[in-house]
Design a protein around this nucleic acid. Structure first.
Lengths: 340, 340
DNA sequence: CTGGTTACAGTAACCGGTTACACAAAGCGA
DNA sequence: TCGCTTTGTGTAACCGGTTACTGTAACCAG
C-alpha cells in the first residue's frame, strides 16, 4: 500500500558518492571516461545501495528499450522451444530482453499491437502472426523487423529467415515414388496463406509432375499443420463414402503426421507396410514415434539464432541479408518403409 | 540514421483535438469522465495520427510496466510450451506483456537480474532459476512473485504453484511392485536442489518401505531430468562391471525416460518385457513413444494459468493461496507392462 | 436564491534517467 | 611559455507520459 517506490535512484547514488548524476550515468554506460578513484567509489556505493537503473527512465531518455519482441502464432507447438532457445541464445549475451506474444494480431485495427515500436527496439515476426498491412505500416516507420518462415510482401525490404521447403519436400515425395513405388500420395496441406505450406505443396506437385504422375485434387486434404485437425481430416477421409484410393501420406509437418498415424492405426492400417507416412520438421519427438518418422530436418534453433542476429544487424545499422534460406535435409526412418 | 523519433506524442494529440494533455491521458486511461464530444474528437485524432502511448513514459510516470516476467532454466524442454501458453492465456487478456528469460541466474552478484522490479510488475519464478538469496532480496522489497514447481524458502511468504509429486510417484512405484511384481526398481534422481526431484525420490522411497523392500543406494543413479544425461547414466550403469541387478526403471521424468529407453534398447533389453520403464510429466510425445510411456500426468498448462492468476492477485492486492498443489494422475500405458 | 456537490478541463510538477553545453585542470608540442 | 587538445566533471534541459491541485459551469436540495 505504501505508494512510495523505495527504489534507489541515480541521484542517491550520486550524492552518496559525492559526484553528479551525469558522472554516475557515464560510469554506468561507460560512454565517457571517469577517474579511477570515482569509479571505485561508485562501484562500492552502487552495490551497497543495490542500485539498479530504472529501465523505463533509461528507455525514455535514451530511446533504447534493450528489448526485442517476438510475435508467435497462438498454436502451442513444440516447434517453438528450439526457436525460442535459438533466439534467447543471441539476445541474452547482448544484454537484451525478450518480449513474447502469441496470437493472431491481424484485423483488429482498434487494438494496436501489444508489441511494437512503443516497447521494443525490434521485432521478430513468425509466419503470419502479422498481416501484410501491419508489416507495411511498421516498415514505413523504419522499425527493425525480421521475418521468420515468411518473406516480405513485395515492395517491402524486410530481412527474412526461412528454410528450404520446396526442394526437401520434392526429394521426400520423390523418395516415396522411386524407392517405395507409391503413386497416389495423399497430401495434407497447411493454411493457404502460410508460406511454408505453399512451398511444400509446390514441392509435392513438382515431384509428381517430374515423375509423370497426374495431380489429383482428391488427394489433397486439409491438415493445417496441427495434430488434431490432421487427425480429424484423415479420419473423415477414411470414413468418407467416396473411398478414394491412396498408398502413402505426406502429412505437411510432423505434428500433423502424428494425427495421421493415429487415425490410420485406428482404422487398422499398418505403417509403413500398408501406408507409409512422412512429415516435415523433425521435432524432437519424431525419432521416437512408432514407427520412427521419416521427415525433413529443419534447423529451427539456427533459424532463431540467425533471425535474432539479423535483427541486431538492423538495429546496429550493419548490413543484412535479404533472405536467408537455410538448408534442410531429409531424414529417412521407418515410417516411409526404409530401415525396416 | 534520422535520430528524431517521429512518433506522435500526447501533446500533439492534445493540440490537434484542442484539449489539454491531461484530458487526453484521462480519456486513454478512462480514469476520469470526459465529455462525449471530446471523446469522439480524441478517438478520431488518435486513429488518424496512429497514436500509440510511449510505454516507457507511461511506466515512468505511473510506475506500472504492464509487463510480467518469467524466469526459466536454460534447459530447452517441451515442457515449457504448455507452461508458457498457460501463462500467456491469462496475461494477454489482462493487457499485460510477457518478458521471458532463460538461464541460471544465481551466483552472479555482479550482474543483476535481467528481469526484476526495474522492468516488470511481477515475476514468475520457475524451479531453481533463482537462488534463495535472490528470492529473499526481492521479497524483502515486497516485489510480487509466484514460484512454479518450487516452494518458498522457510520464513518467506511467497505463493507457490506446484504439482503432487510424491503421491503420484508413490502410486506408480507401487504399481510396478504390486501389478508387475518388480522389486529392484532403478531410480534416476534429478538435481538434488530441485524440489520436484526431491519429492519424487521421497515417493519412491516410501513406496519401497511400505512394501517391505529395502532401499538400495546402488539402484539410484543420476538422471537430472534430461534425456542426454539419463542416456549416459543408464549406459554407464549397464556397462559397469558391477552389474547390479534391476528389474524396472523409474526415470524421474519423461525426458529422462526417453534416454533410458534408448540406452536399454541399445543393450538388447525389451521394454516392457525385460525391463518396464516409467516416467513423469506426460509430455505430448509420451503417448507416441515405442512403447507408449506409462507416466504421471502433470497439468502443466493449468500450472501456468494458476501461477499467472496468483501473480495478478498479488499485483492487485487480492488474497492469494500460499501453496497450490495441483493433482496429478498416473497414466498407464504399455511401457510398464500394462495394455500389452 | 443559496451553498454544496458533481462533471469536466487545464497547468505544471514530477517520474529517473541521458546528454548537450560549459568549464577547469592537466598534458603537450613548438 | 603559450595555445590547443584531452580528461574529468557539473548543471540543467529534456524524454512523454500521469496526476495533484485548481477552477469553472451546471445541477440540485432546501
Amino acid at each position: 500500500m505504501t505508494r512510495r517506490s523505495s527504489s534507489v535512484t541515480i541521484r542517491e547514488v550520486a550524492q552518496q558518492a559525492g559526484v553528479s548524476v551525469a558522472t554516475v550515468s557515464r560510469y554506468i554506460n561507460r560512454n565517457a571516461p571517469v577517474s579511477e578513484e570515482v569509479a571505485e567509489r561508485l562501484e562500492q556505493v552502487m552495490t551497497s545501495l543495490r542500485y539498479a537503473p530504472h529501465a523505463a527512465a533509461r528507455h525514455l531518455a535514451s530511446r533504447k528499450t534493450y528489448v526485442i519482441g517476438i510475435l508467435l502464432t497462438n498454436i502451442p507447438s513444440d516447434f517453438f522451444v528450439p526457436l525460442l532457445f535459438g533466439i534467447e541464445s543471441v539476445v541474452r549475451p547482448k544484454g537484451y530482453n525478450l518480449l513474447i506474444s502469441t496470437g493472431q494480431f491481424s484485423g483488429h485495427d482498434d487494438t494496436s499491437l501489444p508489441i511494437g515500436p512503443h516497447n521494443t527496439d525490434g521485432l521478430l515476426v513468425y509466419a503470419d502472426s502479422l498481416s501484410d498491412d501491419e508489416l507495411t505500416m511498421l516498415h514505413s516507420s523504419n522499425f527493425p523487423m525480421v521475418l521468420i518462415h515468411r518473406t516480405a510482401p513485395q515492395p517491402l525490404n524486410i530481412p527474412s529467415v526461412t528454410i528450404e521447403n520446396k526442394a526437401a519436400t520434392y526429394k521426400l515425395v520423390e523418395h516415396l515414388i522411386m524407392q517405395h513405388h507409391k503413386r497416389r500420395i495423399l497430401f495434407l496441406r497447411g493454411r493457404s496463406h502460410q508460406e511454408d505450406a505453399y512451398w511444400r505443396e509446390t514441392g509435392y506437385r513438382s515431384a509428381l509432375e517430374a515423375n509423370g504422375i497426374p495431380f489429383d485434387e482428391n488427394l489433397i486434404i486439409s491438415g493445417e499443420f496441427e495434430r488434431e485437425i490432421a487427425y480429424k481430416s484423415m479420419t473423415q477421409f477414411l470414413e468418407n463414402g467416396k473411398q478414394i484410393a491412396f498408398d502413402a501420406v505426406f502429412a505437411g509437418n510432423d505434428d500433423a503426421a502424428i494425427g495421421v498415424m493415429t487415425a490410420l492405426m485406428e482404422h487398422g492400417h499398418r505403417i509403413p507396410e500398408d501406408i507409409p507416412v512422412v512429415g516435415f520438421d523433425d521435432l524432437r519427438l519424431s525419432a521416437f514415434l512408432t514407427p520412427p518418422l521419416t521427415t525433413v530436418r529443419a534447423p529451427t534453433e539456427e533459424v532463431g539464432r540467425i533471425a535474432a542476429n539479423q535483427l541486431f544487424n538492423l538495429i546496429e545499422d550493419k548490413p543484412t541479408e535479404g533472405i536467408t534460406l537455410l538448408p534442410t535435409e531429409i531424414i529417412l526412418r521407418r515410417s516411409c518403409g526404409c530401415l525396416a
